[in-house]
Design a binder for these strands. Structure first.
Length: 535
RNA sequence: GCGCCCGUAGCUCAGUGGAUAGAGCGCUUGACUACGAAUCAAGAGGCCACAGGUUCAAGUCCUGUCGGGCGCACCA
């Protein structure tokens, strides 16, 4: 490098997986990038590079192609070692230490406890949970947290709704004059039924507006517990359910305003206290204490986020709904104003889902009481398919969810394609074990057909895919990878006999199949999706 | 008006500044007396919304235009 005047170019050496077959197993465009600095034609530089390339046993061949690409072909025998690596610890293959134990707090879902979980919460749940699993595999230390908005006006309003439903149970007509803005959804009836069973001593007739506060807290806790249950069924659990009410009881909102004031970012104007978020690129300052002396909803949130850093997390990731994106700038401003590293806060906006049924858009509105609950979706499509669909696309792009398609238990449904490959291998191994197997010594060198080689390369890529998905917070890379792996196995399977092959080849192909099954199972587990033994 | 997301095959979408832009579905044609045909193989199908710019190289980066989705508060 130095000989060629290429000091400081080291970081430009990037080895990547080629986009096309026939370009080697690995490729680098280094010569093209560095040609200018080397004052040499790219091809010439690539040729020199090839000459200097040390004799790495893993590399069988180095080839210069096109305008100056350097393509590497890996030694097949070396490559086949991946099968042994997987088999040594099938459940742990793919793990890495790129996270270096960095403490990550992942907050997601955080739905208001004023109604059932809707589908967009399901998307956040699937994305957040998968990301947590992926990051853990990549060596991060991840905590999952659900922030419960169990305080504020909405809780009193929820209490109001509960009171009306209790009145209704005692025969009173509440429907003809249902107040605007009070949650009209039927789910409050179920809460009322539970309340009546638990508190027979509270006659509904005696309840008044003065009771809405504690009724609301009862209802909020009831609905939160329901969220917890539904999410558990969805395969998602949290390390902590962080209550906004407890945060208020500890007077953290007051403290955050004081801390910001001490740093000179609070200003009084028009009888209100404003946070000078414009100092950090926000387009306007934000009210924290209203002119009537109460806090805006932003204050507890600011306190909550500052608290995350106070609790010692190195990296704070929020998954927020699309209705919060105007909110990101000011949250970041708080973090920066308090002197925490602004890069340590990452906010992902999980974009909206449009549900299609029979080609028509299903309109959802919590206020109108007309929505599709996550639970209904799980009943219709199953947990595996629902999770797969939610994680298949980049979280930050809006998606259409075709209810008819997700319900289809057919080849149209991509999750079955992956699971089918695994089920095939299970079946194969069952038959092998049932056949009084005659073991042959394992010699992986015989795995040299193109279909086998393709599988070896793909298996070897798995740890990198997991690491990249974690670093880029891109869980959608896994479904794509698993589809590739399953596809390559299906192709291999149609092309080659396994049990009927000669003993040495049979043994190697069985080992390869076991490794593929292990990675499919592990990869699906990263997404919270099962690998059935039979379908 | 401002901000965010998105315009790529008939449809749904991949694409890390690099080679001839890919996959699934749908369509056409083939493959089981065969370890699971929920599979495989082959084919047709593209002004990468448009216009400029940066670069040896742009679907990818920058600017603008057009089209679609969502959001703007001393509400939560």
């Amino acid at each position: 490098m130095q000989d060629q005047g290429l000091d400081g170019q080291d970081s430009a050496i990037l080895i990547e997986t080629p986009t096309e077959r026939g370009h080697g197993d690995l490729t680098s465009s280094f010569a093209l990038k560095a040609a200018r600095a080397a004052r040499m034609a790219p091809r010439q530089l690539a040729d020199r590079l090839k000459e200097w390339w040390p004799a790495v046993p893993a590399v069988a061949e180095v080839e210069v192609a096109g305008p100056g690409f350097v393509n590497f072909t890996l030694n097949t025998r070396w490559l086949a070692e991946v099968v042994n690596q997987v088999r040594i610890a099938p459940a742990r293959y793919g793990e890495s230490q790129v996270g270096a134990g960095r403490r990550v707090l992942l907050e997601f879902v955080s739905s208001n406890p004023t109604g059932p979980l809707v589908v967009v919460s399901g998307r956040a749940a699937a994305v957040g949970d998968s990301l947590a699993r992926i990051m853990q595999a990549a060596g991060f230390s991840v905590d999952r947290e659900f922030y419960v908005n169990d305080a504020g006006n909405q809780i009193a309003t929820l209490g109001h709704a509960l009171r009306l439903r209790l009145w209704q149970r005692s025969g009173r007509d509440v429907l003809t004059d249902w107040p605007d803005g009070v949650y009209p959804g039927d789910y409050v009836k179920a809460v009322a039924a539970r309340f009546a069973a638990e508190h027979p001593e509270r006659a509904p007739q005696t309840l008044t507006e003065a009771d809405d506060g504690w009724l609301g807290q009862y209802a909020a806790e009831s609905l939160r517990a329901e969220h917890e249950q539904v999410l558990a069924r969805f395969g998602v659990t949290f390390d902590r359910w962080f209550s906004e009410r407890s945060l208020r009881e500890e007077r953290l909102p007051e403290q955050i305003v004081e801390r910001l004031a001490a740093r000179g970012f609070i200003e009084e104007r028009d009888g209100a206290k404003w946070f000078r978020s414009t100092a950090f690129g926000d387009d306007k300052d934000r009210v924290m204490v209203k002119s009537d002396g109460t806090y805006t909803y932003f204050v507890p949130d600011a306190a909550y986020h500052a608290g995350k850093f106070d609790r010692g997390y190195d990296w704070v990731i929020d998954l927020l709904g699309p209705d919060h994106h105007g909110y990101v700038r000011r949250l970041r401003a708080v973090v920066e104003a308090l002197g925490y590293p602004p890069d340590s806060l990452d906010v992902m906006i999980v974009q909206l889902i449009r549900l299609l049924r029979g080609g028509e858009i299903v309109r959802m509105s919590k206020r109108g009481g007309n929505f599709v609950a996550l639970e209904d979706l799980m009943d219709e499509a199953g947990v595996d398919a629902t999770r797969y669909f939610f994680v298949e696309r980049a979280p930050e792009t809006p998606m259409d969810f075709d209810l008819d398609l997700a319900q289809m238990k057919s080849a149209d449904n991509p999750v079955y394609y992956i699971q089918y490959a695994g089920a095939r291998i299970h079946s194969l191994l069952r038959q092998w074990r049932a056949s009084e197997p005659a073991e042959a010594p394992l010699n992986l060198d015989v795995l040299n057909h193109p279909a086998e080689r393709a599988l070896l390369v793909t298996l070897a890529r798995f740890p990198d895919v997991v690491a990249r998905a974690a670093g880029e917070r891109a869980p959608q890379l896994l479904p794509r990878y698993l589809t590739d792996l399953a596809g390559e196995y299906h192709a291999f399977y149609r092309q080659h006999r396994i049990l009927e092959a000669e003993p040495a080849v049979r043994q190697a192909r069985l080992a390869l199949s076991e490794a593929v099954l292990a990675v499919l199972t592990r990869g699906l587990a990263c997404l919270g999706i099962s690998q059935p033994e039979q379908m």
